[in-house]
Nucleic acid binder design. Structure first.
Ligand code: FES
Ligand code: FES
Lengths: 149, 149
DNA sequence: TTAAATTACTACAAAAAGGTAGCATTTATA
DNA sequence: TATAAATGCTACCTTTTTGTAGTAATTTAA
């Protein structure tokens, strides 16, 4: 139910990067914006680049950029990469024992809600996120406009 | 996404107790059945009784029994009691910061799947679990029967 | 070529979660 | 009443997760 703090951080970073239109995201900038502990964030960024979501560019004017198209990164992938493949494959209540042996009594009742959730996480890419974000911005801009005039 | 091990244990214990028809569940019996580390389980049981799900009966022939009707205990309650109220109230991806400030970009997309899940957890009581379990047992018994004859 | 801005790496520290051991207390019953 | 079978409690240990500090390497640009 509750993702690890590190996974939350990862989702925060990637969501943030996906919705701003910067060319480059240095760790220090992300630190100031997101308030994730400085050194921990740096490690996380290195980790995310090793996992292939972003690419690091060293040296002056360096930082991090997405290494592939936003539409090819979805939330399920990120969670899986951070928490391990198990996380999404076993049942969300985590009764691993009863999967091997025999599905526990909760299993059937749970299955529907669970797949809805995984579906949402899988079907939502960072590109969707970005589009949504920009639509919202437009709506707010129009609202402000109509209030002023 | 992933409940803490302790919460898993709690759900396992309560599910197990709900589906067996014993009058009393001593810690040692639950230990043998569920293989949860002995002393840790004992602490968990004490905790669950402090939280009002079960009652402890000390002394010889003692053990644990439900302290209220199975139909009045649902999964959401148990998870909330174990993980803290926050767990169910804030968004499942745990972006607490963005709730206070402003809902993050993920929020809207996420809301539907999230509420489905909470709904299921809230609407499923231990009594439901028990009924389901007994129906399944009957079905299997009938199947066996028809195979033999 | 030197300084500044940046990531990479390593080692450590602190906090939280999970697990163990042992003794005290309670209760039923032989 | 003594013993066995149970929970209650406390103190400690181990592992995992989260967080910190400092130095090395890389790159740009003055
Ligand atoms: S196997 Fe999914 S809840 Fe037990
Ligand atoms: S507020 Fe729910 S995902 Fe951010």
């Amino acid at each position: 139910m509750i993702l690890s703090k590190t996974t939350e951080y990862a989702l925060n970073v990637l969501s943030f990067m996906a919705t701003r239109n910067k060319e480059m995201y240095p760790a220090e900038y992300l630190y100031k914006e997101l308030k994730i502990p400085r050194q921990y964030l740096r490690r996380l960024l290195t980790d995310l680049s090793r996992k292939g979501f972003i690419t690091s560019i060293r040296g002056r004017n360096g930082g991090f950029v997405f290494s592939r198209d936003l539409s090819s990164i979805n939330f399920a992938q990120v969670i899986e990469a951070m928490e391990g493949q198990e996380a999404m494959k076993t049942c969300l209540l985590g009764f691993t024992a009863c999967i091997i042996d025999h599905p526990c009594v909760m299993h059937d009742l749970w299955t529907e809600a669970r797949s809805k959730m995984i579906e949402t996480l899988t079907n939502t890419s960072l590109a969707d996120l970005k589009n949504k974000y920009e639509m919202d911005k437009d709506t707010i801009a129009q609202l402000n406009n109509s209030l002023i005039h």
